[in-house]
């Protein structure tokens, strides 16, 4: 027996959740589908393949004040901004959920990042399995699967008249308490998975570090930040104070990218990664070599966003194959 939820019950449940939680779901923003807060279940888009951006911004916001600084004649007071309501992320894809496990490795390793940790603790994830791979998808190469439940609190799998529901964690079970569930005998249809790529060995990666390949690849790289910003696992940030006036200052933490020309440039002028070649190589080695060496998981979940969105068609799948091949 499996538990199911009808589309009508799902709508009621989601509407009820919006009363207690900030509910984030795929919804239309002009011509895009993005994970954004919804006020009603009507806004949810179900027939999206992959959202334009990942749900990363709800854990590592594009911009956040990490310290509010009040300055007056009596001195300075530092205050850490409070979090809003707990959030439910609905409609998360298993790859984007896996990205959270990947980010946990760096963000929650000691000393843990308090802002990310707080968001993680106050989030319940409701995933929807992918029926079939989109162009550019390669989750199975990176340890994931289109119906992988293990990084979600609840997994939904589409069926004829609704969804099969599986509460994966206690948090998921608790969230489902208010939902009207039914039962069905037949299991939901099996997801179609993308074919897995052969990953290069560590030795192969190391042996290719100084090859001309990286300079040639960087020929067509524009040096923009698109790949990092659409990526569910890229986490680099910049920090800088922003003075709203002489007494109110915000210490802003904002998204940043390893492809920015000044990313590694020191104030004195020294730049250990001075050209696109070093920066592009750093991107792929960080994702597919170094991160795994340090945290035993790669910094990529195979969501395919960079693959389809890179203006220069720099395709990480192709790089994996090129490095693994001759």
């Amino acid at each position: 027996m499996i538990q199911t939820i009808s589309r009508a019950s799902l709508t009621l449940w989601l509407d009820a959740l919006t009363r207690d939680y900030t509910v984030i779901a795929p919804r239309r923003v002009e011509n895009l589908v993005l994970y954004k807060p919804i006020s009603s279940a009507e806004e949810v888009v179900y027939d999206f393949g992959r959202t334009g951006l990942s749900a990363k911004e709800h854990f590592l916001p594009m911009m956040q004040s990490i310290v509010n600084i009040h300055k007056d004649q009596n001195g300075l007071i530092l205050e850490v901004p409070r979090l809003g309501r707990s959030q439910v992320i609905f409609g998360l894809r298993p790859c984007d959920a896996r990205a959270l496990r990947v980010l946990d490795a760096v963000m929650l390793s000691e000393p843990a990042d308090a802002y990310y940790g707080e968001r993680r603790k106050n989030t319940v994830t409701v995933g929807i399995a992918c029926k079939e791979p989109q162009e550019g998808c390669f989750c199975t190469s990176m340890g994931g699967a289109p119906d992988d439940e293990k990084d979600l609190d609840i997994l939904l799998v589409e069926m004829n008249d609704g969804y099969a529901v599986k509460a994966v964690t206690d948090g998921g079970r608790a969230l489902l308490a208010g939902a009207s569930l039914s039962e069905a005998d037949a299991p939901p249809p099996v997801s179609k998975a993308p074919e897995a790529l052969q990953l290069p060995t560590l030795e192969t990666w190391q042996g290719r570090f100084n090859e001309a390949y990286w300079a040639r690849l960087s020929d067509r790289c524009l040096g923009c930040r698109l790949c990092a910003y659409v990526c569910p696992t890229c986490y680099c940030f910049d920090v800088r104070d922003y003075a709203e006036n002489s007494s109110e200052i915000k210490r802003l933490r904002c998204w940043d990218s390893c492809q920015a020309s000044g990313c590694y440039r020191l104030a004195g002028g020294h730049n250990p990664r001075p050209t696109k070649r070093e920066r592009l190589r750093q991107r792929f080695y960080h994702k597919l070599v170094y991160y795994g060496q340090r945290f035993q998981v790669d910094l990529c979940v195979g969501c395919g966003r960079c693959v389809v969105q890179c203006p220069a068609n720099i395709d990480i799948r192709e790089i994996i194959a090129d490095v693994a091949g001759q």
Partner: peptide, 24 residues
Amino acid sequence: DRCIRCYACRQACFGCYCFECVAE
């Protein structure tokens, strides 16, 4: 408001060749 400041527009533009962009 939708812009994410990825600078793809600038980086793809032949005319945006400043060594250091005023925006950065």
